[in-house]
Design a protein around this nucleic acid. Sequence first.
DNA 1: CTGTCATTCCCCCAAGTGGTTGACTGACCT
DNA 2: AGGTCAGTCAACCACTTGGGGGAATGACAG
Lengths: 119, 119
Amino acid sequence: MLFTHMVERNDTDQLSAILKAASEPNRRAILTLLAQNGPMKVTDIAARFDLSLNAISKHIKVLEAAGLASRRTEWREHLIEVQMGPLSQIENWFADLRSIWALRLDALEAALLEEDNND
Amino acid sequence: MLFTHMVERNDTDQLSAILKAASEPNRRAILTLLAQNGPMKVTDIAARFDLSLNAISKHIKVLEAAGLASRRTEWREHLIEVQMGPLSQIENWFADLRSIWALRLDALEAALLEEDNND
DNA sequence: CTGTCATTCCCCCAAGTGGTTGACTGACCT
DNA sequence: AGGTCAGTCAACCACTTGGGGGAATGACAG
């Protein structure tokens, strides 16, 4: 098996979700904030941004849906924590793409060598 | 300088564009196809998908805008080529995030040790 | 001169996105 | 009982997005 991270059909949806979630600057900022500070309450996160609590709440839900954040609800206080794990799916996809690319270049080089031998 | 890839304000837009462009399954498929086959004409790319030529043309423009593909126009034939370079911006962002995260854990551990000494 | 070809450009549509404001929930504190 | 507080839900708005169809372009072939 050449491509160790070979993506199964089911995973592509999650990969799409992860990339899309990460494509929004505010959401990336939230992830950074959580990485710095550890678990935070929704309100405290919102306080760092020039956005309504509601908007932040929605962003967090998107991050959760993508698996990039998790929530520990302690009555009305929701502690949000960053989840680094799923981000590696991006790396895996990237690594696969690079493998495919390198494979083609290798084949190309081999073909050129073959041609040299026939001269 | 701790974070070697520290993202400047100007870069975040491009990073967003890259992530967003890559978040669409069809666009990822196009990238894979190009990585496998090398430069291809728009029509030939479209032939591999169950989408209109128009849709493919638009997807390619998104990839171009994100810097993930480039175009070499030879009269009416446009040769599209994948560009792996910009993808590393994703890796850089990821590495930075991970650094920030690890930094917090280190600080946490240090604090615990300090506490131990005071016991 | 009339097609054909590869591709873009323009217009249309349905669905999704980021953002807002306002109402709701339910324990806790006077 | 009545207010506060953390957070979600619901409705709404402007804008974008992914997709389609069709016309336009401009060299080249018959």
